[in-house]
Design a binder for these strands. Sequence first.
DNA 1: AGTGGGCCTACCCGTTGGTATAGTGGGCTA
DNA 2: TAGCCCACTATACCAACGGGTAGGCCCACT
Lengths: 205, 205
Amino acid sequence: MPNILIADDHDLVRDTIAAYLNARDEFATFTASDLGGALKQMTGMDGIDLIILDYNMPGMNGLKGLEETRKAYPATKVILMSGVANRETANGAMARGADGFIPKSLTAGAMINAINLVLSGERYFPFEFSDPELPVSDKPEFVSLTSREMQTLEQLCIGLTNKEIARALGIQEVTVKLHVKNLLAKLGVSNRTQAALMAKQAQVF
Amino acid sequence: MPNILIADDHDLVRDTIAAYLNARDEFATFTASDLGGALKQMTGMDGIDLIILDYNMPGMNGLKGLEETRKAYPATKVILMSGVANRETANGAMARGADGFIPKSLTAGAMINAINLVLSGERYFPFEFSDPELPVSDKPEFVSLTSREMQTLEQLCIGLTNKEIARALGIQEVTVKLHVKNLLAKLGVSNRTQAALMAKQAQVF
DNA sequence: AGTGGGCCTACCCGTTGGTATAGTGGGCTA
DNA sequence: TAGCCCACTATACCAACGGGTAGGCCCACT
């Protein structure tokens, strides 16, 4: 039976989560109200399989607390939990080695599954936090591009000059300039850098 | 008890997964060996909660089969499964409305958790398929940049011209040119577009 | 006191980028 | 067949960019 340590300074949140997990008879739970207390509790016993850290909690100061925890107990799975979850912190947490991220908007059932997933060795990351939606490639701005303009844009996205694009496409530089001018207008931007950035952003290439 | 339909043309894979799920007494499973068979089976009964589609299977041709399935049964959760899983197909599947993606490299336990997660309304996407690692921001090329060069690069990444950057930073355009020239050299690129692309790629901003 | 690095400015140079105008030819459709 | 859109080419102009050289200022380090 996996041991789970829940660290959150909000008594209500912490205790209800603990109670909910306990009720399932699958987990043994322990609690702490700040990072210091959580780490101290872990020294006493070495059987903690998973620790759930609240992002806003004394001792955490940002993601530093997460890093500390990971360094001190590399074998223990760590899930970061946050109510004010924005994409940056979620990504940052995963980048710093968290095994999972659970926003407080998650349903209780989904949380259980996320926990099980992490305990089984996978990492859990809510899909809606994965970078924007991808299928924006066919936004109106892009569908209006002709095939040649698309090819030009593609080369633009590698940072090529007009001359290089001309060579790559086997046409004259003046023609490339034409295509570039037209695609800039269609995309509503004022220079090639913005066009490249926009195309990358929209995941066109 | 959720009804799960497993569609895979490999008999061994399909049947073992079905057996594994059945053994847990949490799910009722049904099977099909191609997309046509799966869709036909769903017309007969309307209680399928989740369908697991193999990516390489007669009738699927790419992600078209996924789209068909979603259109025909919008209420049914769909998980795409693939052994030859590359990032593109995984992303493409999610972009086309799949509720989950499971590579065959997943352990059986993790698969169960993924299925439960999807059934509880969340979407499951293996973290290792999320775009690269983010914390590459402190690559050697970038740490060597001075603070002013960093600020210049930041403006560059919005697609501003030298003149606009000068206004934004409150310095002369000539000075901006200097910073740009230096940061291009340090980043090892030959124009501003490449610099912006590289910075975006490395998630510096 | 001297040295070096970061920052700012200046002037000059050649190249590249962006815009305008104009003309050719191919393909598609009314 | 006339009209339209697209691709391509051409000439020309001005703005923006990339690179070089050189000088002054400030601050930290030796």
